[in-house]
Simulated assay, not measured.
Amino acid sequence: MYFLLNILGLIVVTAVVYLFSPYKKKVKWRPILSLIVLELLITWFMLGTKIGSWVINQIGSFFTWLVECASEGISFAFPSAMANPTVDFFFSALLPIIFVVTFFDILSYFGILPWIIDKIGWVISKASRLPKLESFFSIQMMFLGNTEALAVIRQQLSAVNDRRLLTFGLMSMSSISGSIIGSYLAMVPATYVFTAIPLNCLNALIIANILNPVDVTKEEDIVYVPPKEEKKDFFSTISNSMLVGMNMVIVILAMVIGYVALTAALNGILGLFIQGLTIQSIFSYIFSPFAVLLGLTGHDAMYVAQLMGIKLATNEFIAMSDLKTQLDSLPPHTIAVATTFLTSFANFSTVGMIYGTYNSVLSGEKSAIIGKNVWKLFVSGIAVSLLSAAMVGLFVW
């Protein structure tokens, strides 16, 4: 019964997004169905085969190694803090970002990461028959993050029409960044994080092409390649990367502190009117129907619904920190769908980040397309997370 609910969840989420689409007659279902089949194969491979399990373990070991390398640098700067067996969130999840960002930028500098993005993007473009730039962008987000990926294609963004600009904004709601994965692994199971990453990329394409289908000519279907003149020297690159990583740490820390404090303040105000009323309890009821469609019931459905609300109103770090404390008491299916849903940047602050990026790399007139379609960005982000969670839920019981 719950398995059928999970399948129904996939259908209902897709149908709801279709109802929101202002271009229903232009939706092309063939490439969307191709992507769904590809998702099923990827999820089965990652969760249902020994080879897939081995691949996840190897990737997990790689990111564990990255975090261990980062810990060496953190221990040098904060020896007493790292000597504590119960290292807190700031040292275990945030500070490693500095090294991970630098490492990925080194891969980009020597052309390794762009080569991987190019090949995987080409495969997705051929399999889905969707535009090359959008396909490449979905992969770029997976490794670089939404704002970084937007900056990489800034030259091409200035040449595309408003409809395609909106597509990139919609897709940006569903990304994560390779530099942040180590932080996730400190809180939730690696298996579902690494399964969610490719699913989010493909679902971002699906949702964007339902909400905002766009016809692209062959002449327009090109990918911008930055000229060699834009490349800085190696030491300037890694030094800048470290500063970028530190900036990310400060921004994330500020958001975590601010949103947790804001949530506590709002809960205190709500409690003045109704005893025990909190934002978490409100979100539990709003998102509980979606949690049920993920094959959850009773307490688990309400708890995952609460995590959904926390993530969308604040960020995934706060929700994952809560989930981490409950992992030992939850069944595998609940852990799988909850972790998968939380593995993305879809929240209020991400809309501001996307708008700010558009405003900085494009004209104010072009960036207005984001401000006019904020509701579409939220629909896209929530729908992608739900589809990915429902897809993973089919294979974990």
Rank of each mutant, 00 (worst) to 15 (best):
I238W: 08
N240E: 13
L199C: 04
C201Y: 00
V244L: 04
L211Y: 06
I206K: 08
I197D: 05
L199K: 02
V249Y: 07
I238K: 00
T217Q: 11
I207H: 00
P198S: 13
L205N: 07
A204K: 03
N200P: 00
P227D: 14
V251W: 00
V193G: 04
Y192T: 05
I222E: 13
L253S: 14
V214P: 01
C201N: 11
V193T: 13
M242S: 10
P198M: 10
L253K: 03
D233L: 09
A208D: 02
I210E: 05
Y192M: 09
D233W: 10
V216Q: 09
L253E: 00
E230K: 13
Y192F: 15
F234M: 10
L199E: 08
T217Y: 04
L202E: 03
I197K: 01
D221V: 06
F235K: 08
I250Y: 11
Y224D: 14
L205E: 03
I197G: 01
D215N: 11
L205F: 02
S236G: 11
I252H: 06
K228E: 15
V249G: 05
I210V: 14
V193Y: 04
I252N: 08
N240M: 04
M248V: 15
E230V: 11
A196G: 09
S236L: 11
N209M: 03
T217R: 12
P226L: 11
S236C: 03
K232Y: 04
L243A: 12
M242A: 13
K218I: 02
G245I: 01
A204R: 02
I207S: 04
L211E: 06
Y192D: 06
I206C: 00
L205A: 08
M246V: 08
D221A: 10
M248F: 13
L205M: 15
F235I: 13
M246S: 14
D215T: 12
L243Q: 12
K232F: 07
L205G: 01
A208Y: 07
F234G: 11
M248L: 15
Y224R: 03
I197L: 15
E230P: 04
S239R: 09
S239M: 09
M246Q: 00
S236Y: 12
L205H: 08
I206T: 05
S239V: 02
L253I: 02
E229F: 12
K228D: 14
L253N: 09
P213R: 08
